[in-house]
């Protein structure tokens, strides 16, 4: 039976390899895609959209709807994770506190918030891991730089590679790094669950709001140039600012959704203690 499967795999792989023989060579100037589609975008994108980077002009302008619904898909993914994974009934676990100065661990039967505000005790997870000072110090140093880089990727996205998705993921990853290197509660203190939900909806709202604003001002949906009517800049700059606003919306949604998916997955949906 195993050999039958292997035979099937080899057979379909050889069919696929045979099909690739019909493909045009990589970078072939005479391939169909390079003859009809690409030259139009390459030649007309600057006069159509006034965006210096062709990738951005396709992503945010020619295919603006596409990116908008991608953002909605990300938002829906976060919503699905919330619906599927979130558990509100608390599991009756024991609670552990560590006395910070002596390192003595208190094991309290059952769930309690008795010592949560205390300055002498810190709550630790039931699957105890040693307090790693190197890990914590390094991530405390790294996280601001990661976030700064993420903001650069978002803000510089329409001139260089990058943009809302990548910047949002890096921004989310910095918060996930905080949750991993300290614990989940530290991450949730910085940005709690309700905030994450609010942010993931806000990003989609910013994107569609900018589109609707263009509609209200009398042009097509997501035709950013018309924003110059309410901004004190010329249409070219208004396009740049409109795309920037859209990218910020994407980044906010992606950041919030990535962090909340991590929170739900790593804590089995209880958001009490995680990885």
């Amino acid at each position: 039976m195993r050999y039958l499967y292997l035979l099937l795999v080899v057979l379909s792989a050889s069919v696929l390899f045979y099909a690739t023989l019909d493909f045009p060579q990589w970078g072939d100037p005479n391939s169909p895609a390079s003859l009809h589609v690409s030259p139009v975008y390459l030649q007309r994108s600057l006069e159509d959209t006034s965006v210096p980077n062709v990738v951005t002009s396709v992503l945010a302008d020619y295919r603006g709807y596409d990116t908008m619904f991608e953002t909605t898909v990300i938002f829906t993914a976060g919503l699905a994770c919330f619906v599927l994974l979130r558990v509100f009934a608390p599991k009756m676990k024991d609670t552990y506190y560590r006395h910070i100065q002596s390192g003595v661990v208190l094991h309290i039967k059952g769930q309690t918030t008795l010592l949560d505000g205390s300055r002498d005790f810190e709550r630790i997870d039931s699957r105890w891991v040693p307090a790693d000072i190197i890990l914590k110090t390094i991530s405390r140093f790294l996280i601001p730089f990661i976030q700064l880089f993420a903001l650069y990727v978002v803000a510089h996205g329409h001139h260089s590679p990058g943009g809302g998705f990548q910047g949002g993921v890096i921004l989310g990853a910095s918060i996930i790094l905080l949750s991993i290197s300290f614990d989940l509660r530290t991450g949730l203190e910085k940005i709690h669950e309700r905030g994450l939900g609010l942010f993931s909806a806000t990003g989609v709202f910013i994107y569609t709001g900018i589109g609707a604003l263009c509609l209200i001002l009398g042009k097509e949906f997501l035709n950013y140039g018309v924003l110059s009517k309410i901004l004190p800049v010329d249409p070219v700059m208004a396009r740049s600012l409109g795309i920037f606003g859209v990218e910020v919306g994407v980044a906010i949604t992606v950041m919030a959704v990535m962090v909340s998916i991590y929170n739900y997955v790593s804590s089995e949906g209880r958001l009490d203690e995680g990885l």
Binding site: G162, F165, Q166, V169, A173, Y262, V265, S266
Partner: peptide, 25 residues
């Protein structure tokens, strides 16, 4: 380069963390 950037941040970065977070349980 744009695809590479996305692959590095989403594929190699965050999805690995999601996998590890799921495997933890």
């Amino acid at each position: 380069v744009d695809v590479a950037f996305t692959e590095a941040s989403v594929g190699a970065g965050v999805s690995t963390v999601f996998f590890v977070g799921a495997i933890y349980h």
